[in-house]
Write a protein that binds this DNA or RNA. Structure first.
Lengths: 209, 209
DNA sequence: TATATACTATTACGCTACGTCAATGTCAAT
DNA sequence: ATTGACATTGACGTAGCGTAATAGTATATA
């Protein structure tokens, strides 16, 4: 599959600006630039973007992420397994925080006494930075072999595309409706537009069956 | 207990710069300034700082946090209970991400096929955070409006309810559709159900005008 | 008493990871 | 032929601090 900035930004949930910025700093270059100068991303970039977001989730800076994923010794699956551990640690940390809140509520209701120190358990962020160093030294070589059946994928992607379009339309309808309600003017032009969009949605819906 | 910047920064795990910055922007003023111009924080500020960090954990901007905690209607324990819910949602989201990583590993090992969109599940916490922010503002804005306009409120609330229902329905439709596509069976019962739901949605849509 | 050290203060410039225009070009469909 | 949705490249703005630089203060030890 090939994606433009807009499409990739949609499926990945990041802004177009973000993608252009990542291109600019050399973190994620598109697969190619077409005749009109448009950025064209392939499935490969999709995977890299996913990796980038994993690292971002762990609070690692973009410059460090760049170093990590451009490292020739970088092992994709190995990296994922580390993500797993880190995310699980993050989850544990969150559980501590949740306990903290519970305790604080109890203490506020007079059923418990908390020391000032206890009030800040679960906020630790230093661990993450330490992990960053660990990531720096990756020692292993591997190249994932990615050859999946083409026919199966195509069908899947096609229905997938349909679904995406439908969902996008639906979102638009909702957005428009929201605006209409917020402006307290259900009889406005916006409402008309919503009707139009909805009609389009409807068409799509029926045509796919 | 009384704390200087250094001591508070130690027990809270934030930098001194951060505390001075929070003072500067009026987010967390020290209890008093001593004769030498030193910032002196009391237990009260410790609690406020804890609150601030909770909100920060949810990705809320400092300016918004300031609005929230300086609001005369701000209820400490009530806020904590909300934190609990939010953090638990965040935990759920993290679990989705963890599953995502697991699936990605499986797909890399050839045991699973993932669509490009699936690769980004669990990264959507932005949406959640943004919604939280918006909801917070909306709630407060409405409280403000409520005092002014009483008659308009009813209508507004009704349309708001309608909107919520519509959106919920729409989500259901999408969910059902998604399932139908995933099972690769667009002619199935699920599709029928989607049609039903959609009809309901449609009814709602038109009845509101 | 002098000095080292540990802490405090206030500017003030720098940085990251984008958001947000603005001006302009391209593409597809009406 | 025009519109509207998409793309491009600058360029400036912002949040939340980090990081000096410079200077005053508190306290323990020589």
């Amino acid at each position: 599959m090939e994606y433009t900035v807009h499409k990739l930004s949609e499926i990945a949930g990041v802004s177009e600006r973000t993608l252009r910025y990542y291109d600019q700093i050399g973190l994620l270059k598109p697969n190619k630039i077409n005749a009109s100068g448009y950025r064209i991303y392939s499935s490969n970039e999709v995977d890299v973007l996913q990796q980038i977001l994993f690292y971002k989730e762990l609070g690692i800076e973009l410059s460090s992420i760049k170093k990590i994923i451009t490292n020739p010794k970088f092992d994709y699956t190995e990296s994922l397994k580390k993500h797993l551990l880190n995310l699980e640690q993050k989850k544990e940390n969150l559980e501590i925080l949740i306990n903290n809140v519970k305790n604080t509520i109890l203490s506020k209701e007079g059923d418990k006494i908390m020391s000032d120190k206890e009030k800040f358990e679960g906020f630790k962020n230093k661990m993450i930075e330490e992990n960053e160093e660990k990531y720096g030294d990756e020692i292993r070589e591997k190249y994932g072999n990615e050859e999946i059946e083409a026919s199966n994928r195509k069908i899947k992607n096609m229905t997938k595309e349909d679904y995406d379009k439908i969902q996008k339309l639906s979102l638009e309808v909702n957005e428009t409706l929201k605006l209409a309600f917020e402006q307290g003017d259900p009889t406005s032009e916006l409402a008309m537009k919503a009707c139009k969009l909805h009609k389009e949605w409807l068409t799509y819906f029926w045509s796919s069956y």
